[in-house]
Amino acid sequence: MSVNLTLLIVMGVLYACGIYLILERSLTRVLLGLMLLANATNLLILATGGYAGLAPLFDQDIPSEDYNDPLPQALILTSIVISFAVTAFMLGIIYRTWTLGRQDEIQDDVEDRRVARTPSFDAEDDADVPMETSEFPLTAVASPGTAAESDGETVTAGAKELSADTAALEESPGSRNVSRNINLEGGER
């Protein structure tokens, strides 16, 4: 007795065709490829059972070496059921793709393409004078995008009331936020 060479060759051919098919862009071909791969694997499990033998129905007169190994067959049965379920589901998805877009192709991820096209410069993160986007009113006045107006506008900061100009000065880059400076410039106490 020997391992069945035909089975092994068939297994090899199934694997080759399966791998070729899952590399295609057409969904139906991918599905066919997956089915071939699953069946090739079933043959592989069958081959691991060793030499062909009698059906494993116990009889006291038959020595144990004459039986076929039943476990791989149980494994194959499980894997056939699983690949059946997956195939049915894939068919459902392929049909849905067809009804939605009239196409049988694997589609690109739109968001992925968009992120890939996005320039590396980001106005909010990378601008030299960063655009101020905080929630606090003081900085909102100081943001260079909005050109602070100085005609009498005042801003309450803590216990004090400051003119918008002073407040903007205080919030600008490089300021040390010292109220003494503001007093020198004539801010209210």
Binding site: I22, L34, F89, M90, I93, R96, T97, L100, Q107, D109
Partner: peptide, 9 residues
């Protein structure tokens, strides 16, 4: 469905 195809395969 598009994401599902990738995931399932």
């Amino acid at each position: 469905i598009r994401a599902g195809v990738t995931y399932v395969v």
